[in-house]
Each structure stands twice: as C-alpha cells, then as structure tokens.
C-alpha cells in the first residue's frame, strides 16, 4: 500500500467514515462523489457502526508476502448495522471458528508494514463476539 494512498484513506480505514446521500439516504463506504442511485452530489459524513455480521468468507492459505506469517487467515464480507458491506480480515480466530451469520465487532489493528523501515498501515479488522 503506497504511503500517499494510505494517507488519503485514513478517514475510512481508521474511523469507518462513510457518506450518506442527502437526497435518497444511500450510504457509501468508501465514500463516493456521486450517488449511483439518484445522481445526488450532496452527502452527509457519518461513522459506521462497529457492530456487524459475517455475510460470507474465505480462508487464505497462500497469502501475499506481507501476510505470509498469518496463514491460514479469514477474509470476510461483513455487513454493519447500517447495512453497509465491507471486506475485512477476521482476526484472533481459527478458520473453523468462523461461520456465516456470526456476529463481529470492527476493531483497530495494524494491517501491514511497508517493509522493515517503511510506514505502518493501520485500519479495521473484524473479531468474533
């Protein structure tokens, strides 16, 4: 993850900031500039709930290099209480603990490091509750 892109995405990665269309109420995460439902361009900034459930998931057994020491790990699509879906790693669990429909909470974790001397990239992960 290159540093400038990581920096630009801090509001959504750190604080789950989304935007809600002022015209039709649809929530976008990550935020968008134009509403794909009603073409509205006025949005209200909101923070998503950190509570949600697992919609579906997969187990990663062959990972990119920066995640290689974490295998096997789970990546899931989580739906928050605001009915917004996001893709996230599920931490602190074995793959066999994860099931569709299980409740999760989104927590703040280190996602990856830009090598041994680069910046540390933080964001959200889910944990089973």
């Amino acid at each position: 993850m290159p540093s400038p892109r990581y920096w630009r995405e801090i509001p959504q990665r750190y604080r789950l900031e989304a935007n809600k269309c002022k015209k039709c109420g649809k929530i976008f995460f990550p935020p968008r500039l134009i509403c794909c439902e009603c073409r509205g361009q006025a949005f209200e900034k909101i923070r998503l709930s950190d509570e949600g459930k697992i919609i579906t998931f997969t187990v990663i057994r062959v990972a990119p290099q920066q995640f290689a020491t974490q295998t096997p790990y789970v990546v899931a699509i989580v739906e928050t209480k605001d009915e917004v879906r996001l893709t996230t790693q599920v931490a602190d669990c074995k793959p066999e603990d994860v099931e569709i429909g299980k409740k999760v909470r989104l927590v703040f974790r280190k996602i990856q490091e830009e090598g041994k001397t680069g910046i540390l990239c933080y964001g959200y992960k889910a944990v089973l509750v």
């Binding site: 020491t69 703040f108 974790r109 933080y122």
Partner: peptide, 9 residues
C-alpha cells in the same frame, strides 16, 4: 499481543 497489535492499536 496479536501479530497485528501494538501500543497504537
């Protein structure tokens, strides 16, 4: 700490 946890998290 988990592999993804540090003083900041």
């Amino acid at each position: 700490p988990g592999i993804d946890e540090d003083t900041i998290t």
